[in-house]
Design a protein around this nucleic acid. Structure first.
Lengths: 235, 235
DNA sequence: TCACTTTTTTACCATTTGGTAAAGACACGA
DNA sequence: TCGTGTCTTTACCAAATGGTAAAAAAGTGA
């Protein structure tokens, strides 16, 4: 009930007029009129500091588990100060999710339909593994959101991921049709690539117990994934 | 701070005497003296109703995201009534995690060192996939806990999972030594089995968008996993 | 340096949330 | 049917949490 109201608010809280010089920074998202003027140096810095802190907290605590106080502390700012830069907890989270979508989709886009199929797919695997290792927080943020049923990302999945997914699945199917790689289900092939690579970020707490040497683990993962997908794809 | 206190409490709240006939049900975990007498029918039923409700809520909201009110509502009981059966939110969660550990480890134990290696491993894959499909809540509860850094399960991983993991990795290594299956890293092989199977439970929200037909999805997953692991393992 | 804007801080608030106290309602053997 | 122990409800509470108001502090261009 309250949630719905808040959503409605966010969607159309335009009516407000910003006469008084003090108060909110953000242009109350007045979509129709004046766009927000260029953000100042300090604004840029603080927004990014906040987003980084929020990424840290959200990715390890989940949306509800994260508190503004934690984020504020992590960012080295006061809570009201954070609310000066963002309309609220949800806006921070959504901003993070939007940024993430790009980061997440890019590697998939890089698969070149005219390249060598096996090389292209293996390169994609490596790119995803690198991301999991270098950007574990992003991976966990995503995992948390999906685990929770993608409450704030559902649209992104349908509008952003789905078309790209279908497109790349079609590319893979064509590769299979041409006999350049062994036939298997392209959709599940992509799933398995995501699952096996992101596993090293999302289940790091488990992997660290079972295979404590992180260098060996990363190297081992690389070799293993290379092997399993090469074997699968080789005709 | 408060968390630490609570832990301390849970660990040694023995001093209390249970003179008054009313009050707490559970024997205040008096480890030294009288064990709790056999739980009544209604006790058994309510505890399991609560645990089921809690599984539902914890698995989709995470520990901090879940509230006792949600659990109470889901269970069809009042909040204080729930606290009559369990000492608190954390105890419910821990109970769930303990139960889960058994469920989680069993399939791995069933791998028979004397069976046909490929068949044994493939059978394990199928068992794990079945679990992901039939017990998605358990899979998500686990995923949530690990994602959050296994704060309440760390010991279980070390004491329960690790030994079994090492043992089975050794079994697989022996199989490889004997030439019955192709050589690959046993640890990462197990990781990839977990990742690919649990993916269908943990990332269901995503999979449902990308591959909406759930029957086709399950069947496709089965065929694909069979294929990829057979190819990997065949010498 | 002054007037004006942008940032930050200090006090607060209303809700939510985990949890408790204590009175009732209920079950059941004697 | 009475009494004793088991289970449930009602009425609360303190802390945590998302958020706001408004004043103070910093900047900044002229």
């Amino acid at each position: 009930m309250r949630e719905m109201l808040k959503h409605a608010d966010a969607a159309q809280m335009h009516a407000q007029n910003m006469n008084k010089p003090s108060g909110r920074l953000f242009a109350v998202t007045d979509s129709a009129s004046a766009k927000t003027k260029a953000p100042s140096r300090i604004q840029q810095r603080n927004r990014s500091v906040i987003l980084d802190a929020a990424l840290e907290v959200f990715s390890s605590e989940g949306y509800r588990g994260a508190t503004l106080d934690q984020i504020a502390k992590q960012a080295g700012l006061s809570k009201p100060n954070i609310l000066y830069y963002f309309n609220g907890k949800e806006e921070i989270h959504v901003t993070l999710l939007n940024q993430l979508m790009t980061t997440w989709l890019d590697p998939l886009k890089e698969m070149n339909p005219n390249g060598d199929p096996i090389k292209e797919i293996i390169a994609y695997v490596h790119r995803k593994l690198d991301m999991a290792i270098e950007l574990p927080r992003e991976s966990r943020l995503f995992a948390n959101e999906i685990l929770q049923g993608a409450p704030r990302m559902g649209p992104h999945l349908t509008a952003g991921l789905k078309p790209l997914f279908d497109e790349q699945a079609a590319v893979i199917t064509r590769w299979m049709d041409s006999g350049k790689i062994a036939r298997s289900d392209p959709a599940h092939l992509l799933f398995s690539i995501w699952a096996t690579t992101q596993h090293y970020a999302d289940f790091a707490a488990q992997a660290e117990v079972l295979l404590p040497d992180s260098n060996a683990r990363e190297q081992g993962a690389r070799v293993f994934l290379d092997q399993i997908f090469t074997k699968l794809l080789t005709p």
